[in-house]
C-alpha cells in the first residue's frame, strides 16, 4: 500500500482584495471584496515507502498548500488523501505524531532555550519512550555534529547550526515520513553537501521516505530520483529527472567565451539567447547539428578563448513547462 495516496485534491482560497487609494481603503472598511484563488486544481500522485521525492514549482504553485494538507493542518475542498493509512486532517494528532516537518525559514525549537532542552521538550511532546529518545538523540547529535551546540540557546545559533538542529529535532520521534521545505536555503557551500549527504543516508539506510520542496536545483540533482513538478495548482510532470528533461526539450546549450568582446556570432543552426560581454549563450538542436560539428564551425569562424556544452538547467526546464523561457 502506498505511503501517501493523493487523489484529485482541490483547494481554493479567498483572498481579500485591496482597492487602491484613500477611497478604496474607506470602501474596504465597509465591504470587503474577495477573489478566489485556486491553489490546488485536482492533483493526484502517490508515494511509496522509501522514496526520495522532489516537489518543485515556482512560488505560489501550491507546494506549501500540498504539504499542509498532507500534514493534516489544512482541510481541502474536495478530493481524497491518505497518509500512513489515515486521512490527515481527520486524524491530525495521529498523523503528525508519525511525521517530521522541517521549514527552512522557521524553527521549531524554542528561541530562548538551550538546544538540548528543546529536544527534551519535544521528546515529551511526541511521547517518545525514554530509552528510544535517548538513543535517537545521541545518534543524531553524533551524525550532525551537534555536541558543541547543545547548551547554546537557539537564538544564538547561526543559520547553518540552527538548520542542523532543526533536522535533528524533526527526527527525534523516529518518523517514517519527513517533509522538508527549503532545508538548504542560506547554507554555505560546505554545509549544503553535508546536509544532502545526511538526507541521502537517512533515506537509503533507514528507509525514511522524504518529500523535499526546494528551489535549489542542485539539491534536486543530488538527491531526487523522482521529481514532481507543480504549477498553478496542477501537476505538470511526475517521474524521473532525466525523463523530465527529455520530455521538455532535447536542446542543448553552448556557452562561448570570445576573445573579442564585441565579436559577432551568427550561425544558421545555433540561436543566440543572451550575451554578457565576451560570453555568448547559444542553443542548438542536437538532432540538427551535432555538438562537435557546431563547435568546429564556430571555432573556425571566430576567435574563441573557451567554450563548454551543457544541458539546460532545471529552471529552464520548468519554465518551459509553462511555455515561457527562463532566460
Amino acid at each position: 500500500m502506498s505511503l501517501i495516496a493523493v487523489e484529485n485534491l482541490v483547494k481554493t482560497f479567498r483572498v481579500a482584495e485591496h482597492a487602491p487609494g484613500m477611497w478604496g481603503a474607506l470602501r474596504g472598511v465597509l465591504r470587503r471584496r474577495y477573489r478566489t484563488v485556486r491553489a490546488l486544481d485536482g492533483i493526484s500522485f502517490s508515494v511509496e515507502p522509501g522514496e526520495l521525492v522532489g516537489y518543485i514549482g515556482p512560488n505560489g504553485a501550491g507546494k506549501s498548500t500540498t504539504v499542509k494538507i498532507l500534514a493534516g493542518i489544512l482541510v481541502p475542498d474536495s478530493g481524497r488523501c491518505e497518509v500512513l493509512g489515515r486521512v490527515p486532517w481527520k486524524e491530525r494528532i495521529a498523523t503528525v505524531s508519525r511525521i517530521g516537518v522541517v521549514f527552512g525559514q522557521r524553527t521549531q525549537l524554542w528561541w530562548d532555550l538551550p538546544v538540548i532542552e528543546s529536544f527534551d521538550l519535544l521528546g515529551d511532546i511526541y511521547r517518545v519512550p525514554k530509552a528510544n529518545y535517548r538513543r535517537a538523540r545521541d545518534e543524531l547529535v553524533a551524525l550532525l555534529d551537534l555536541e558543541p551546540l547543545l547548551d547554546v540557546p537557539v537564538r544564538q545559533l547561526s543559520l547553518g547550526q540552527r538548520m542542523r538542529c532543526d533536522i535533528a529535532a524533526s527526527l527525534l520521534h523516529a518518523p517514517s515520513l519527513l517533509y522538508l521545505d527549503e532545508p538548504t536555503i542560506g547554507l554555505d557551500a560546505v554545509l549544503k553537501p553535508a546536509v544532502r549527504e545526511f538526507l541521502l543516508r537517512l533515506n537509503r539506510e533507514r528507509g525514511v521516505t522524504v518529500i523535499l520542496t526546494t528551489h535549489d536545483m542542485d539539491d534536486i540533482e543530488a538527491l531526487c530520483t523522482r521529481v514532481i513538478v507543480i504549477g498553478q495548482g496542477r501537476i505538470l510532470s511526475d517521474g524521473a529527472l532525466e525523463d523530465l528533461r527529455a520530455r521538455v526539450t532535447r536542446e542543448r546549450w553552448l556557452i562561448v567565451d570570445l576573445v573579442d568582446a564585441d565579436g559577432e556570432i551568427a550561425d544558421p543552426d545555433a540561436a543566440m539567447m543572451r550575451r554578457e560581454g565576451y560570453r555568448v549563450h547559444l542553443r542548438f538542436d542536437p538532432d540538427r547539428i551535432s555538438a562537435a560539428a557546431l563547435i568546429n564551425r564556430i571555432t573556425a569562424r571566430h576567435a574563441v578563448r573557451d567554450l563548454f556544452v551543457q544541458n539546460p538547467p532545471i529552471e529552464e526546464i520548468i519554465a518551459r513547462l509553462y511555455g515561457k523561457s527562463w532566460q
Partner: peptide
C-alpha cells in the same frame, strides 16, 4: 506570522 501552523504540527 504563520507560527500557529507549528502548533498544529505537534501531536498535542
Amino acid at each position: 506570522s504563520g507560527e500557529f501552523d507549528r502548533l498544529l504540527l505537534r501531536p498535542r
